[in-house]
Design a protein around this nucleic acid. Structure first.
Lengths: 164, 164
DNA sequence: TATTGTTATACTCTATAACTATA
DNA sequence: TATAGTTATAGAGTATAACAATA
């Protein structure tokens, strides 16, 4: 990953109007520097890739991890409640739960009180698996700390606390 | 968006093993709190939605904006160079440029020196349009500042500077 | 042989709409 | 009528592989 200082005008522009090619490593970003969204997007790509790689041996992706974590911490939750809490579409959660149920990590139990809804639970193997996932996720988090620095990571979490 | 304090054990768990349902607003996140990736993902969703909304009147999305900005700042760049700089697949850039070229914002000129590659330029209307997009993007950035606070936004940019 | 742009495929994710069975 | 879960579709975005033209 290259670092690129802010600049307000094109770099290495030829004065005579000729075509001026740049190497990829020295391509200016102009207005992109200073956009929080751009930095956040690039960081998110890096962090998700590290998460996917670190949890690759157990084949768990960030969204699956978040679903298992919320169910583990809130047994009996409905699909709507999980979807709302994580900000994912309920239609999408259906497929996520299908795959987690096929892997025997999660059970859908018909609710007695509202027969439209399902209460969600981890299975015993699911709970055991989640423990392992959490250890691997903690390892991933140490990669983040190594990348950002301890202070910066904690400050980042404080700055973004309202979004969790 | 709700705020949720850190917690290490399930909230409102019934001691008798009975089904315990929670309202969506008080669903615990357990291990998700403390994960930088989760906070960053939620923030990125918020920031992209605001960008898309703020630039909705001109129908420009974040990726399109980043492509136009890089071409504007580095005229004559090849597709490979743009793709590398922005971290997008060259196959994906083909479609992005197709749509930007159809809208007459961008030109692909066959390179004289390497006839495999295209040199990319903004058209005159494309350059004028980009100026307007930049004004709207600055407005979006003020929304980010209002959301995070001035100091926090600047600190965030410093923390993530290596990823741009 | 390697690279540039292109086409194609597949899978993830987001955003909708519509359907069913309940409430 | 409204809501929970489901199914389906369409559009981004990501990740590949393969191909033609060119280096």
């Amino acid at each position: 990953m290259t670092t690129c200082a802010a600049q307000t005008s094109p770099r290495k522009r030829a004065g005579n109007g000729a075509v001026q090619r740049n190497d990829a490593d020295e391509v200016g970003l102009d207005a992109l520097v200073g956009h929080a969204g751009y930095a956040v997007r690039r960081f998110q790509i890096w962090i998700f890739q590290d998460f996917i790689k670190t949890l690759g041996e157990v084949d768990i992706r960030p969204t699956q991890y978040s679903v298992l974590t919320v169910i583990g911490a809130n047994p009996g939750l409905s699909q709507m409640a999980v979807a709302k809490r994580l900000g994912i579409e309920r239609a999408r959660l259906v497929h996520l739960l299908d795959s987690l149920e096929q892997r025997r990590y999660v059970k859908r139990i018909k609710s007695k009180t509202d027969r439209r809804s399902h209460a969600l639970y981890l299975t015993a193997p699911g709970a055991a698996a989640l423990s392992k996932f959490k250890r691997l996720a903690a390892e991933h988090e140490r990669h983040v700390e190594a990348k950002l620095g301890r202070e910066n990571r904690q400050h980042l979490l404080r700055i973004l606390a309202d979004f969790t």
